[in-house]
């Protein structure tokens, strides 16, 4: 069963085409990574799935339902969650207010979901009354993920988990993500510059270049491939 299936997805900004004919799918319970150089259209693809950028061509299916015509808030309701690049938080609101905003579309089990998020990220519980703007980078990333979890997603998309964070912080976040994937059964689609990390925690991966998918496969196979190691991991 596929959570997400993208067919011939093409879009861009203004007149400039950024991604063309992207074919990509995420199976139920899978972690899928997208990597590639700057400007290859990874973030644009996530935004297109979230509904922040309209498609020029192609289709998006979420489960059995076609979602590419739906506005962003309708997609959130159905279980598409994006932790956007640069962490886009409500910096003037408290940690808990941010999490409650994350539960905007799912108001039935707010208390349980809040406890769940605090369970995965105890640091957020300690800081629940602090302003989001006063958190460290790592805590802000936790909050961004926690906020996305509050919407009870079936697919969690994270744009640049490692952006601007210390390696140790990234490692612990990655571990928590794999735990969430295992325990909650939430499928994940990660855009990541840190290719070795992306390949370690994902089941499959797609390589984007200049707005197209140029390679894809099982992560444990890609990580062994010489061309990938040379081009994206700086290894010979």
């Amino acid at each position: 069963m596929r959570v997400l299936e993208a067919k011939e997805v093409t879009t861009g900004y203004g007149d400039v085409e950024i991604i063309k004919n992207i074919e990509l799918y995420v199976n139920d319970g899978e972690i899928v990574a997208i990597f590639g150089s700057n400007g290859s259209g990874k973030s644009t693809f996530l935004k297109a799935v979230a509904g922040l950028v309209p498609l020029w061509n192609g289709t998006l299916h979420f489960g059995s339902e076609r979602i590419d015509e739906l506005p962003a808030y309708e997609r959130v309701k159905r279980g598409v969650a994006l932790a956007p690049e640069g962490r886009h938080l409500f910096l003037g609101m408290s940690v808990e207010e941010n999490l409650l905003m994350g539960a905007w579309t799912k108001r039935d089990r707010v208390k349980q979901n809040l406890d769940k998020v605090y369970g995965y990220f105890p640091q957020l519980k300690e800081k629940r009354g602090s302003l989001a703007g006063d958190l460290s980078g790592g805590q802000q990333q936790m909050l961004s993920i926690g906020k996305a979890l509050m919407s009870e997603p079936k697919l969690l998309m994270i744009d640049e988990l490692s952006l601007g964070l210390a390696p140790a912080v990234v490692d612990s976040l990655a571990q928590i993500l794999t735990r969430i994937n295992r325990e909650e059964g939430i499928s994940m689609l990660l855009v990541e510059q840190e290719v070795s990390l992306a390949l370690e925690i994902s089941n499959r991966a797609y390589v984007f270049d200049l707005g197209r998918v140029v390679d894809s496969g099982r992560s444990d196979e890609l990580i062994k491939r010489d061309s990938i190691r040379k081009t994206y991991m700086g290894l010979a």
Binding site: L52, V76, H88, L89, M93, T105, K147, S151
Partner: peptide, 10 residues
């Protein structure tokens, strides 16, 4: 505070 965050919160 952040319109993109608001939109991606639904």
């Amino acid at each position: 505070e952040d319109e993109i965050a608001a939109e991606s919160s639904g």
